[in-house]
Amino acid sequence: MTLLTFRFAPSPNGDLHLGHAYSALLNQRLAETAGGRLLLRIEDIDTTRCTPEFEAGIYRDLEWLGLEWERPVRRQSDHFAEYQAVLDRLVGEELVYPAFMSRGEIRAYIADSDKRGRDWPRDPDGVPLYPAMDKALPISERKRRIAENAPFAWRLDIEKAMARVSSDLSWTEFSDATLGARRRIEARPRDWGDVILARRDIPTSYHLAVVVDDALQGISQVVRGQDLFLATSVQRLLQDLLGLDQPAYFHHRLILGPDGRKLSKSLGDTGLAALRQAGASPDDVRRLVGL
């Protein structure tokens, strides 16, 4: 019988907060209840913001909470060659293209379009979809710009990708934290447009790395925050394109601050280390997050 495999996958770009504690402890509880495995993965592809100090802090916080996980820990920055190989496959199949427009150029292009009375489409996060201009560039022009070190990102050609996959692009979503009830959710990757899959200097993105890692690690149950629910559509598309096994998903509730806002490392919300230093116990954290 195959064991259910869960994972907790933080990024070492700040201190863990109560939202991370809830997700980590929930993964541990579900893995223990199912008699399954719990893995820890360090998602550190953002080499400018992720630091060894924050990574060490993750281990301290999780050990303090009483979390146990299998070793060794997979660190994404150690596996860029694996992501590059997958990216090369997508480049070879012409499912991605180099996109050269900067954020400023995108804003200017869209502003000009809006002046002509066009409402520019936006993705579920409210970000304007990438204009289609670069997809029309001749191969010779793409190669010339790349040879001249023009900055670019590899973007997924969403229409080509959708033409390659099965008509039943959906995923299994558990409807409660017991993993006892499930439903099928229709994936809608077109809503995201031509998403970034890699940059010139980093051969991956969150979307690409997470599906490759989940497949390589045999993750069967992805338990993560509701804020990633809509992004699952893009990841299901990539799993289908690459022939990867798809896990089942449970997108849990978010831990909110006193103002009703989702907790965030970037906004300096109180971290677990600060709570520990203030005298809080692991049981206090469990009570704070409803566990």
Results as ranks from 00 to 15, higher is better:
276 R>L: 10
275 L>C: 04
229 F>G: 01
197 L>G: 06
286 R>P: 00
200 R>Q: 13
147 A>E: 15
67 L>T: 10
77 S>K: 00
229 F>Q: 10
182 R>I: 06
153 A>C: 11
161 A>T: 03
10 P>C: 10
249 Y>F: 15
57 G>F: 03
181 A>G: 02
114 D>G: 12
9 A>I: 03
1 M>V: 11
243 G>E: 01
54 F>C: 12
136 A>Q: 12
258 P>C: 11
139 I>S: 15
257 G>H: 03
40 L>C: 12
179 L>K: 08
209 A>D: 08
213 D>I: 02
188 R>D: 12
281 S>I: 11
194 D>P: 04
277 Q>C: 01
17 H>Q: 10
124 P>R: 11
197 L>S: 09
72 P>C: 12
123 D>L: 10
8 F>M: 03
122 R>Y: 10
118 R>I: 15
194 D>T: 07
133 M>T: 14
182 R>L: 13
105 E>H: 02
259 D>T: 06
4 L>Q: 15
144 R>Q: 15
107 R>L: 09
30 L>T: 05
22 Y>K: 08
116 R>T: 12
52 P>N: 06
72 P>S: 13
172 T>S: 12
199 R>C: 07
266 S>F: 04
190 R>V: 15
144 R>E: 15
291 L>A: 07
117 G>H: 03
139 I>L: 15
32 E>T: 12
13 N>Q: 11
232 T>A: 13
167 S>G: 13
271 G>M: 03
181 A>Q: 04
8 F>E: 00
194 D>H: 08
212 V>C: 02
107 R>C: 01
284 D>S: 10
185 I>D: 01
13 N>V: 06
203 P>L: 11
247 P>F: 04
228 L>I: 06
56 A>R: 14
205 S>H: 02
212 V>I: 10
18 L>I: 03
225 G>L: 11
209 A>W: 07
69 W>D: 09
11 S>N: 07
59 Y>A: 08
59 Y>R: 14
238 L>W: 01
87 L>W: 01
20 H>Q: 13
100 F>V: 03
172 T>I: 13
59 Y>P: 03
227 D>H: 05
266 S>E: 03
206 Y>G: 14
116 R>D: 14
166 S>I: 08
264 S>D: 12
221 Q>E: 15
243 G>V: 09
101 M>N: 02
34 A>D: 06
28 Q>C: 03
194 D>F: 07
186 E>H: 08
64 W>Y: 04
189 P>V: 04
31 A>P: 00
187 A>T: 01
252 H>Q: 11
54 F>R: 09
139 I>K: 15
16 L>H: 05
158 I>A: 07
226 Q>Y: 05
261 R>F: 04
129 L>W: 10
4 L>S: 15
111 A>E: 14
256 L>P: 13
271 G>A: 12
55 E>I: 03
75 R>S: 08
231 A>P: 01
14 G>M: 08
108 A>R: 08
151 P>L: 05
193 G>S: 11
183 R>N: 02
272 L>C: 14
23 S>N: 14
